[in-house]
Every structure is written in structure tokens, then in C-alpha cells.
Amino acid sequence: MKKEENYIINVEDMTVAYHVKPVLWDVDFHVPEGVLMAVVGPNGAGKSTLIKAMLGLLKPVSGTALFWGKPYQTQRKRIGYVPQRGSVDWDFPTTVLDVVCMGRYGAAGWIKRIGKAEKKMALEALDKVGMLEFKNRQISQLSGGQQQRVFLARALVQDAEIYFMDEPFQGVDARTEKAVIDILKALRDTGKTVVVVHHDLQTVPEYFDWVTLLNTQLIASGPTAEVFTEENLKKTYRTSGEAIKE
């Protein structure tokens, strides 16, 4: 019997479908506080969908995602989200600092503006990701890795307790990957929980202490040492869904 009290994220029986094609099917897993978790699975396994459904950006067919026992809508301010880099137009006329400040918009709410204190937070976050010198740059003049750092800084200023990151290592240089993972580990060490959609199997044991293996259905979820086994990986990356006959 699991002790659910120790988990701060509880996803139960989450099913998301495109018409009748299931993208996620009856997925449930639980995440304890203070772990760095990877969501791993092949393309089209529903990794991004899972995150979006948890954050209420998609409407699930069934199931719930609860944070500290409550739905996302009531816990928004304690949760940060880093969307995929490709989801925005980087030619938008705005500066690095301005993008990072957007992280405080949610706390400010409708209409209210952000002030000096927020700007200071944004500068600190930029410093943390090593982008302070670029604060007045237009965002189109950034490399892929720098864009990712800006997005990370934006999430950092949200000052959340749980962070969701969608493919943060997609198309970034090795230096950025290292810098980002160091920051994520530091976050975890201060007791925050980080959920990362991840592609690269090789780095999983090195980076993450908790893993959720996904291929439409949940294959396994738990501490990396227990879950990240060859057998589970085989199940995850098997193309035909025989998992049901186990």
C-alpha cells in the first residue's frame, strides 16, 4: 500500500484522447517532494500531453492531477512551467529581461503591473542562468541554448515549488545543458520538485533521481535505480502495445 501523504503530485487515471485516439491512457503516478524527475518515452508517447493535461492546458477524458491534494487552478502560483522553445515567435519585439519578467505576471494577476522588486528578481534569475550580460538583448539575437536559459530564468522568477519543463535540452549546446541541469539539481537540493520531459536515455541515470516511463500507458514510475531497468525500457520502446497482455 502506497503512502500517498508523502507525494505532492498525484496523477490518477489520467486519460487524454484526440477524438478516440488515446494519447494517454489511464496513467497514474505519484511524485514525492524534492525529486528531479524525468518523463521518458518514445516520440508520440504523450510526454508533452501529460504535462499539458496536468497543467489544465488540455482537458482530459478522465482522471485528475492534484498538487498537494488540490487541482492546478488553485495552486497555480506554486507551480512553474517552461514550454517548448519552439512554441513562440522569437522575432517578437522584446528583450531578455522583459521575457523573464513575464514569470511574475501570474503573481501580479490581471491588470496589475509589475514593479522594481520583480525586476530585481528577474535580474537575479538571469544571473543564475549566466545570462545577465544579455539582459537588454533582443530575443531574436539569442542562440538556442541562450533562449532556453531565458525560459528557465522566467520559470525561476515564478518562485515556484514545482517546475515543469518541456524538452529543455532540445537543440541546445552542451554547455547550456550542463548549466541547466546544474540549476535544476540546485533547485532540487533546496527542496523543490522538478519534472522534465526528456529525450536522451543515456543521461537519465546521471541527471535524474526519479523517472516516469511512458508510452501512452504508464510503464513504470519511481526512483531511477529501481525503475530505469532494461526490461522497463524495452517495454517502453516496444512499438506494438502488447503491454496489456503481460
Partner: peptide, 24 residues
Amino acid sequence: RRQQAKEFADLTMLFHIFRHENSP
């Protein structure tokens, strides 16, 4: 969509029951 939703809800329910049938 309505039809599909029903049809899919059936499958979802079956699958849910199946997955938890042998669990404690």
C-alpha cells in the same frame, strides 16, 4: 464526437478496471 466520447469512455472505464483489478 458525442458517439466517440461514449465509445471511448467505455474503453477508458474497461481499461481502468482492468489495470486495477489485481491490485490491492
